[in-house]
């Protein structure tokens, strides 16, 4: 049975966001694209288990995350090295985006524990609800909320003190960040 073109288009339209998530997990563009391909192979082989009308992005993200987790559990050393590689990879690609001002942010993101980074990206960048993110990660909604909160707090700690100027020239904002403002 050939794939319904509508389903195929749903898959294709999820790919850009799926890649961005994969890069955030792997910290490596080539590896991320391999992971996306593997995810799509698996998804299309099991497309019968997808119920039309349900959440295609959440379904594909779940498959990708599970593949990533199972692959990387087998290679624990790589997991331990993941943060360093993540940071290095992102450092080596600033010209890819032309946004040098994000380097500090990338570095801070790389310092987060992987489960916090994952939760923050799903909710803060991919646009999933807490409930969807919890389903994708196979954990409780409260766990996702807690991870997102800890990730935000940690990023604020990492970014606010030493790089206030990087947050922008707005004096009022700087005052808030440094705690010198009076409201």
């Amino acid at each position: 049975m050939k794939l319904d073109p509508a389903i195929r288009d749903q898959v294709l339209s999820t790919v850009p966001s799926l890649r961005a998530f994969a890069i955030s997990l792997c910290g490596h563009v080539d590896r991320a694209d391999d992971l996306v391909q593997e995810t799509l192979l698996r998804a299309l082989a099991h497309i019968d288990s997808f119920q039309p009308g349900t959440n295609m992005p959440a379904w594909l993200f779940t498959i990708l995350r599970n593949l990533f987790r199972s692959e990387y559990r087998k290679r624990r050393r790589e997991v331990e090295d993941a943060e360093g590689r993540y940071a290095d990879t992102l450092k080596s690609h600033p010209e890819q985006t032309g946004r040098v001002e994000f380097n500090e942010f990338r570095g801070a993101l790389a310092k987060l524990p992987s489960d916090q980074r994952e939760a923050l990206i799903l909710v803060g960048a991919s646009g999933f609800s807490y409930e969807e993110a919890a389903a994708i990660c196979g954990c409780a909604v409260g766990t996702i909320k807690s991870r997102v909160n800890r990730a935000r707090t940690r990023l604020a700690d990492l970014l606010s003190i030493d790089s206030i100027d990087d947050f922008g020239p707005d004096r009022a904002t700087r005052a808030v960040l440094t705690g010198t403002g009076r409201s």
């Binding site: 850009p16 966001s17 890649r19 961005a20 890069i23 955030s24 890819q96 985006t97 946004r99 994000f102 942010f105 990338r106 993101l109 923050l120 990206i121 803060g124 960048a125 991919s126």
Partner: peptide
């Protein structure tokens, strides 16, 4: 910043 970083990949 998080969304801008993510969207740079999405735009590809």
């Amino acid at each position: 910043q998080l969304r801008a970083l993510y969207d740079d990949v999405v735009k590809e």
